[in-house]
Amino acid sequence: MSALTFFRAVLRPTLLASTTATNRAVLGRAGASCATAFSTTRRSSTQCDAGQGPSVSADEVAKFSRMSADWWAPEGHFQMLHQMNPARVAYLRTFVPSHLGPAVQEPMAAEGRASEAPPSLKPMSPLDAMVRPFTGLRMLDVGCGGGLLCESLARLGGQVTGIDASFDNIQIARLHAQQDPRLSDHQATLTYQHITTDQLKTAGTQHDVVTSLEVIEHVLQPDQFVQDLFELTRPGGLVFLSTIARTPLAYGLTILGAEKLLRMVPEGTHDYHKYLLPSELTQFTSRAGGRVLDLRGIWYNPLQARWVLMDPSLGSMGTQANYILVARKL
């Protein structure tokens, strides 16, 4: 038995079983029925997907369109992203309310906070602030995929727009949003558009928060892409970016490990040469007129099936693979 076969046969089920303890056969069926349900909405949309503008890669768009029905399958190819979502949202919760959020009706919190909040925001009770921390904020998620992050942001009160270069992704995201009637209650809104950053720029809208997580490693001109993100952000607003560092460790984990050995994501999902070092992304950010407020690693704990944010004081130790940053538009 070759080492590779051994890994596929033994290590992968072991790793997965230890984290999920589930009957994969049954879920496989659930995933398949999900795909069937969605397939009626899929049409030959490749002409819509052909990327326009400098940053969209036609190959990448086609690749994600092929996988799009899988976005919400309980144990599909995107499960890693589902599991990463809580850590991402926790990261946003750490920075968004303290920089942009509405005043909290608590004497201590109201005092001395630099008020970057839009004047339209009314003060909130501490409980509301905890349950709906993004209330009233215009948030844009670029490369929203099936809407994993957008839905979470909308549930936490944001006025969310998700855009993606793949028409199929947008269709899946729209369909899936119907599974939750609460997504459009209160002041929260959630809309999806099949549109690129270039096209959105011409519309001239600016947002309080722009996120693009695990996207930049799939675009052709990352420096231009970062530029676009900042143009879509209002001055004082926040931009969140996450990607994978171009290090041997990251290659081992994300390509050799996750793709080739464990087959957790399809082979070819990642392109090592498109990975960006934290220093490079920081440089793009400064050029685009942003200042990085925080940058930290984000690691997967396979035993708990959870992603964990690293302590920023770890420095480059923590950012050898996946990392996330927040920058303020100056």
């Binding site: 879920l27 144990e75 499960q79 589902h82 809580p86 926790a90 349950v131 839905e151 936490l156 099936a305």
Partner: peptide, 15 residues
């Protein structure tokens, strides 16, 4: 709820 997840979602229940 604090992470904005759907409380019926499979990946949330995995916890």
């Amino acid at each position: 709820v604090l992470n904005g997840q759907d409380i019926g979602d499979y990946n949330c229940l995995l916890g």
